[in-house]
Amino acid sequence: MAENTEIEVELKRSGLTFLVPPDKSILQVLIEEGIDPMYDCQRGECGICQVVVLEGVPDHRDHILSDDEHASNKVMQICVSRAKTPRLVLDL
């Protein structure tokens, strides 16, 4: 697994941008910022926090998506997955 790096996350629908530090998940930051996202297991298993990726390349660390889905980079589980690019734009 790659080292965690800081990610800039833009939420397209709300127009907000946050910095996700290496020691926090995207989900954690969104919860702290009061975005109130849907989530459950926080282990990359249940699929509830899945969001559509509009820009950037996710670093998938979940156990729910198939290899094809991982390769397509269209969706990601924000509780565990991070980014291979410095910036992600999510459909939230």
Binding site: M38, D40, C41, E45, C46, G47, I48, Q50, H63, I64, L65, S66, D67, E69
Partner: peptide, 17 residues
């Protein structure tokens, strides 16, 4: 732990792969 929106539609299935 299958999950559904409150209108009944399927939201997610664990280990869906």
């Amino acid at each position: 732990a299958w999950s559904f929106r409150t209108d009944g539609s399927l939201l997610a299935i664990p280990l869906r792969k």
